[in-house]
Write a protein that binds this DNA or RNA. Structure first.
Lengths: 254, 254
DNA sequence: TGCGTTATGTGTGGTGGCGTACAGACAGGC
DNA sequence: GCCTGTCTGTACGCCACCACACATAACGCA
């Protein structure tokens, strides 16, 4: 372990748990590459690992029978991919696909489950994170119903930006279209608009965000709502995160 | 307590936990009426209770700044309202509104939390249920993106039907429109179509489903996907639901 | 240098749903 | 009986987005 991107603590959840007493599992984190387009798992798969992105960004995608797709949530360094595991589902709800190449860590399913079932800080934090993910999915549902492609593109860019360093996003319009569940041409139109308004610059899969505030204004409320929810849910200190019963009763009890 | 609707076991989650050793909290369930339109809590509220519907049906609604609404999930006798509580959020994500009048039970937040934190059957079952709810929300997101009002109305009616006895649904088109997040006229058009096709009969807030299978065919895949997920997740026996650590340590998950 | 591949811009016509407006139809209260 | 509020049906113009079809432009590699 040397620098930021190869430090597990680049993932916020891992960072939050780094100094708790329950960290025997931390050395078992396995650094991995997450190349663009890689599918971590498909809908219905049994999970062998959970994934903690650091520089990569992962889409939770749903694929309809018709082949149409839509992203239901996005996960970056603030989160973890594979919550179905500890939520007790036999199989994954969505497929998870790398949308922005980068790095991350994975942890064996067994290892995570052992920690989760101690009913301590790990469990508490993961559940809080799941709560935020729920908020994101529910907001996505509403956003898909009521907001225009233009607004959603702004939201999408902002959500991506928050999970990256700098203000460059490497992503084609085609890929964005698949994520938003709209046609590529629709994204072209919206992106052209943003470019003309001077908010972004676009060049063959490279987007430079020139005016973040402008994007925020043009975006629908969904961006801010979800961001705030993440802050609320994940800002709880790890002290808070310790299971209240743990003090007086043995941690792993019944 | 006398008959079916006034037996807490009319709620599937309660029924599943009825015979476990951890049932000291069951007598604390408080029977309540859930009249049409009642708001159990609003988005952002701190939860004082969780609610177990029996005959009532509850919508988890999101209200946008513009005033537009959309349902993100629906809960009936198969579930519980107020998951934010045990997921560790300070406040509710959505508002919860009674969409079909009926009965249910409520439980004090503190009481539920105590049981949840025992890390036993209660926790396991609630998490599995939350997983199903997540599936529903994510499916709603995709459905809102890709499916027509016509398809969604079918899904909506089927989901309502599953939570009721008989084949009568008491609901105005206005209310359905608010749930689906579309105009009332859109619902009128779709409902007229269903009526002409002989699938339903409509009369001033009373819908009779005449051909359930027809509705299923006309519905989008979302209905079946979510239904199956609920079955998968909630069919796990309560034995499965007991925390593996409880028996003794290494029994950890499958 | 040239050619295929990938990424983006544009155009035309069709459709689903929206906003608005209004008309009939039924129910319940007086 | 009548009246009023609620519920449902219909119509018109509009816009966002779709499906399909092409044109253009940049890059990457032989």
């Amino acid at each position: 372990m040397k620098k930021t991107t190869s430090d597990p603590r680049s993932n916020d959840l891992i960072a939050a748990l780094w100094d708790t007493e329950e960290h025997s599992w931390l050395p078992q984190l396995e650094a991995i590459d997450m190349p663009l387009g890689e599918v971590l798992f498909d809908s219905g798969d049994t999970l062998k690992y959970v994934y903690f992105p650091t520089t990569a960004v992962i889409s939770l995608m749903y694929v309809l029978e018709s082949g149409a797709t839509a992203e239901t949530a996005v996960v970056g360094h603030e989160g973890v991919v594979g919550i179905s595991l500890f939520m007790g589902g036999e199989s994954a709800l969505n497929s998870a696909e790398v949308r922005i190449a980068g790095n991350g860590y994975r942890l064996k399913a067994d290892t995570l489950m052992e920690e989760f079932q101690r009913c301590g800080a790990v469990q508490h934090l993961l559940l809080r994170y799941t709560q935020a993910l729920l908020a994101q999915m529910s907001q996505t549902a509403v956003c898909n119903r009521h907001h225009t492609v233009d607004q959603q593109l702004c939201r999408f860019l902002l959500q991506s930006l928050d999970r990256l360093q700098g203000n460059e996003i490497a992503m084609t319009q085609e890929l964005i279209a698949n994520s938003l569940g709209v046609r590529r041409e629709g994204v072209t139109a919206a992106a052209t608009g943003l470019q003309k308004a001077g908010l972004i610059r676009y060049a063959r899969g490279q987007i430079s965000v020139l005016d973040r505030e402008g994007l925020e204004e043009r975006s629908c409320e969904c961006y801010a709502v979800v961001r705030d929810k993440y802050e609320e849910v994940l800002s709880g200190t790890v002290d808070d995160a310790v299971c209240p019963l743990k003090a007086d009763a043995p941690a792993a009890q019944r």
